[in-house]
Design a protein around this nucleic acid. Sequence first.
RNA 1: GGCGGGGUAGCUCAGUGGUUAGAGCGAAGGUCUCAUAAUCCUUAGGUCGGGGGUUCGAGUCCCCCCCCCGCUACCA
Length: 670
Amino acid sequence: MDTFYITTPLYYVNARPHLGHTYTTVVADCVSRYKRMQGCDVCFLTGTDEHGQNIERAAAAQGVAPEVMADRNAGAYRKLWARFGVEYDRFIRTTSKSHYAAAAEVFQRAFDNGFIYKGEYSGWYCIPCNLFAPEAESAPDCDVCQRSTERVTEESYFFKLSVFQARLLELYEKHPEFINPPSRRNEVIRFVSDGLKDLSVSRTSVKWGIPVPVADDHVIYVWFDALVGYLSGIGFGNGKEQDQFRKYWPAQVQLVGKDIIRFHTVYWPAFLLAAGLPLPERVHAHGWWLKDEAKMSKSRGNVINPHLLLNHFGSDAVRYFLLREIPFGADGNFSYQAMIQRTNSDLANDLGNLVSRTLALISRNFDDTVPSPSAPLTSLEDELKKHALSTVEAFQDHMDRLAFSRALEAVWELLSRTNKYINVCAPWTMAGDEAQRPRLATILHTCAEVVRIVTVLLAPVLPASCAKVWNQLGQQEALSHQRLDRLQWSRELSGNMLGEIRAVFPRLDKKALLDSLFGAGSGGQKKSADSRDRKKTPAVRKEAPQAPGSTKSSARSSAGADTITIEDFVKVDLRVGQVVEAEKVKGADRLLRLTVDLGRETRQIVAGIAQAYPVEKLVGRKIIVVANLQPRKLRGLESNGMLLAASVGEEDRPVLATFLEEVPNGARLK
RNA sequence: GGCGGGGUAGCUCAGUGGUUAGAGCGAAGGUCUCAUAAUCCUUAGGUCGGGGGUUCGAGUCCCCCCCCCGCUACCA
């Protein structure tokens, strides 16, 4: 029997689960149910990543031990997965004893193989991301999250990532399927091609972690620790379960969000190679769910609470929406409107209603017993049957490629044809006519058979609802034991006594639901409706720090003309500054590091004007500075603002803006 | 700035150079009445981002430009 090992990331327990976690986990659950129904021996692992300075600090801030916080949030994940009907086989916590042993062993193996050495590290470290930033003279912002970094100096063990460049590139080349979707693959290839630096894989400044086996005053780098969870979760490093590990590793699919693709396609395979372990077959990065076209975040206040969704829609409708709404891999926009729309039109109207009308007709005409097809099949039945079988094929083709939305589209095409079939045949006109009874039996059996096939296909996506339909069809054997890969047109329903018929996919009252979600009379749905203007309005830039909704009005006000309002303009804080110091930035042709006196404060600004202005011509000079620009680092140096210059000629030579009269430093321009 | 991916009906998207550019959803009208005010049928007048070019013929190939997204960078 084929084995199939699929993983979600181990979620970091510094926060409660959100829609993004839910998405990955639901996808993994759907795939594992699907593979089980193909007869595979499936292992589905999820879990929590519980170490690191970030947890240490968050726990301290709440006045609790890290263990307490980890327990609390790990519990929150498990509860949510239970509510979503997620059936994982393993839930690994990186604080578990067996994981400690595994992490230490992988580290030891890499060490023994000469891929880990002792050195000293001094650098700028982003605690939330657990990442070092490139070297710089003053604290740069984190590449990943833009938050500020802190100086950390410590003895450290380094992983020789640099020696894996060629092997990784060869891996991507020989196994194009290793990184999905292909656009991510290209990004990773470029990143690796640009060269890899050795990676610090231990910390002495952190206590909350797994001791390094060769030096117990060090703790293993939290990403190294967490990634090993994919191995420890199935028994690696645990004598009793070695056979489980050998059975399931390497994984067939590792699902990740696009933000952690690098850890999983660069560091992770390198760690495995260093430890002499096989590599996973496929890492698949998916996109983010956006709300109102913006990334969900607490600060924006546009986070979707999965529990709220469950309360209003139920687990299957949410599962369906997540899998159907967007192609797997792309970002998607979440809106309650779309959620309601999908639920009503797809689940209630197309699927639920087909089930209802089929069962009701059988119940009424054949006394709750599924009839046998007693009249010869016509071309109508032949076509429908043929289409049903090709749908079974198409569904699996798409599912195997993780193209969930396509797989579901194929099923809905079949549902649509079946609804047409009933209308054309109009079985209700035959009721009570003995002569037409065999024909009626055939029609209703055909409909029921399509319902049976569809129910089996959709079981991985809509497990709870399909189980209900299955019972209503009078089926005895468990739905989850059905084999998708052996799904045939059959007569197995004939003679079945129907179960109690109840609507499985109820229609939602859109207005009432939106009112209860947003409060009566609110414009809750207006927000989601602005996706309509997506192409016409300037997109919300991620650095635009406005609340959702306000972007709309400002965008509108400028629509139709290349003008901005005075309100837009006053957002820009222009100040008179005076250059106090200027020096060339090492290793950069065009950059100068300037110290600028802005009256109340002195700032460091990095500007690309070295080729136009020698240092000595700048000191003492008055310039105009954009004072409230987001800080950013250039060549490792933080630049706090931007100076204004005209861009002249083909080569865009900068010419500084200045004043002809005396102006005090710090004066505002308006 | 570099590299990559995109810009097609109100929305989400399909569209191997070739007849009047398609689907689903939404909207409008109609039909049926078995069914969850569901089904089914009809209706979309879209400069296929803009401009050149190749071709008998281009959404589909080439060039230029604009805009969006991602990665990346020595960004006025």
